[in-house]
Design a protein around this nucleic acid. Sequence first.
DNA 1: TAGCTTTTCTAGCGTCGCTAGATCTGAAGG
DNA 2: CCTTCAGATCTAGCGACGCTAGAAAAGCTA
Lengths: 190, 190
Amino acid sequence: MAEQASRQQRTDERRRRILDAARERADADGWAAVTTRHLADTIGYTQPVLYSHFPGGKAKIMLAVALEGFVELTRLCRAALGRKRGRRAIEAVAVAYLDFANEHPAVYEAMFQLPIEARFAHEDTDADLRAGFAVLAETIGDDGDGTATELFWGALHGISLLERAGRMRPEHRARRVTELAARFAAPPSR
Amino acid sequence: MAEQASRQQRTDERRRRILDAARERADADGWAAVTTRHLADTIGYTQPVLYSHFPGGKAKIMLAVALEGFVELTRLCRAALGRKRGRRAIEAVAVAYLDFANEHPAVYEAMFQLPIEARFAHEDTDADLRAGFAVLAETIGDDGDGTATELFWGALHGISLLERAGRMRPEHRARRVTELAARFAAPPSR
DNA sequence: TAGCTTTTCTAGCGTCGCTAGATCTGAAGG
DNA sequence: CCTTCAGATCTAGCGACGCTAGAAAAGCTA
């Protein structure tokens, strides 16, 4: 009994170590640098052990990292929003969102650029995504059909990627956030 | 002399065939499916021949495809803009932009998601990019410091990626374009 | 035709993700 | 305490990847 519990515990801990190692390495050097051999070395086991934790291999490891990313990003945005409304809300959430994407580029990449089938098959994923979408909708006060939120999300997503790709002047980040808040604070003129 | 010209011609044509094969295969099955062995088979030569055309290997082939993509996307947006102004201009350009990203996903990916160094070392690249940026600025009538254009571009970029990733309802594409036009047609309230 | 240059191929290196089958380990039963 | 046996772990290897050195072939010049 106690032995079984301890075994389960060690299994869980090792799974945790795999995910942490993958995330850390990926954020530092990109997903291409995350190899099964390196991961196995890091956790002190051989390659096949990884496949007992993640039968789907590297793709499932990336998926697991992405799932945790959705939860974390939603939490950060929710915290940034707090009870704010209007422009201050948009600016706070935008900064939180862009900061996360900047600090965890590989996690963000796994969240949004993995092949679809792999990413959204899991039933929990949709719930996590809906929660994130809801925070963004609340941020801009979207009471419509969600189109404005989609646009807002798209802008955040695009800006974060283009910033990291070096296509936008980093020193203008604050201006973009201000501009974003100005354009999404109120419904557009029809 | 005539021999040299013909040789150059054959070299150019083979280069063309490599790029076409890479682009076609990538748009169909993703860049991972574009292997040097497959490319060599397709053009009827062996692997090392690719490296006489593109000493940098696969990365440089992707870069070449990306460079042509910048030119093409700018041309398409320019054509869509024509003499239109205001909302009609924004809607037309947005549709052209999103259509391109949809029809040539791998080209678009190469354009915006390759490692920076590889992508923007070439001096022509910046000129092409500036031309594209100028079209977008003209589309929304940006006479400021370019921040609004960066935002507009970011929105287009983000929407195109999220649409392809299956994160936005495809049937709402038109609504997003309308919403985009409404929010970017006029300067925001300050 | 002979010699030289350029083009093209053969063969192979090291690395990748992944897996079958052997080996080891540790708990349960005699 | 020893044996048994299942699960955990490792060894070894497969096929595919990007890429390259050096041999062979082809084409130009004299």
